[in-house]
Design a protein around this nucleic acid. Sequence first.
DNA 1: TATTGTTATACTCTATAACTATA
DNA 2: TATAGTTATAGAGTATAACAATA
Lengths: 171, 171
Amino acid sequence: MSTSRSTPPGARQPLPGFLPGDLGWHLGMILRGHQLAMAQSVAPVPGQVRGYQLLSTVVHRDPANQQALGSHLGIDRTVLTYLIDELVEANLVERVAAPSDRRARKIIATAQGARLLEELELKVNAAEQELLAGLSDAQSTQLAGLISTLSATIHNAQPGANPCEAVDQLG
Amino acid sequence: MSTSRSTPPGARQPLPGFLPGDLGWHLGMILRGHQLAMAQSVAPVPGQVRGYQLLSTVVHRDPANQQALGSHLGIDRTVLTYLIDELVEANLVERVAAPSDRRARKIIATAQGARLLEELELKVNAAEQELLAGLSDAQSTQLAGLISTLSATIHNAQPGANPCEAVDQLG
DNA sequence: TATTGTTATACTCTATAACTATA
DNA sequence: TATAGTTATAGAGTATAACAATA
């Protein structure tokens, strides 16, 4: 097991019971299950899970402009334009002028959008809890803490790819 | 769905510090980070992470036919054909006749494919450990256990979507 | 000159349907 | 009739480049 280059001296062993790459395999399976479970809950919003996440972000995180919104959602600005168009068409959000920068648009929820989000959150929460049915409350809490830590680490380590900090500047 | 509304009486509360839907958001961010980290490690294999996972599955799980392989990877049989074509072209795997069923093909690794997998697994493991750098060894082990349980629950609850059991019949 | 957002285009990924050869 | 695999086609999703307005 002597390596000429890649492995650093203090490299850890694979996760117990996991083959190399299994972490991604399990994550992918869980995420697919999540999207499938969510699909039914978020059906009233255009753009599936993405549309729901956009509405949720707009209401709860109040990003200052579309760029901040797109960064948080992890989607390109060109994709975001079309997604927003759909939600505007459905009268769930609207574009308003950003106060500080006349180039930018701020996305806010309409009354109808805010009302719909409240309804959907009940169903989404139920769907997520059902997804976690195989774990105890303590285990679910544990998992939530671990993935919070992990995702925070990741977007700090990859500032270019996911500059989620931008969304934290409330406006 | 027995009720016309939604929330069952014993529904649990959202995860602490999570908005409804945040579970998927965090999972998505971690999975994107994982794919990004893996991309460099698995570059020699065609088809990116999918190609690596295919090679790993063929070597370590020895699925009886393409359908079992595709089920495990969570990809459609029509997509799988093209992916296998690429790996065959690169001389990493080959199609052989399945012993029990003349309609089916079994995918096995070539010597070159097995050799490459061994090399890549060192890098993949290093990449995954780097992704987990923000967690202690104990926390990483904890996380591995939790997502194993979760993914097992999920593909049991969705037998149609992910019949991974089919891959367990070694052959 | 750089940035925000839009639009048009092209590319990738995935799904649908039709076909063969076996069962 | 049903299933394993292939192929061709179509669709969704995403990225690239060019543009207008503003900083």
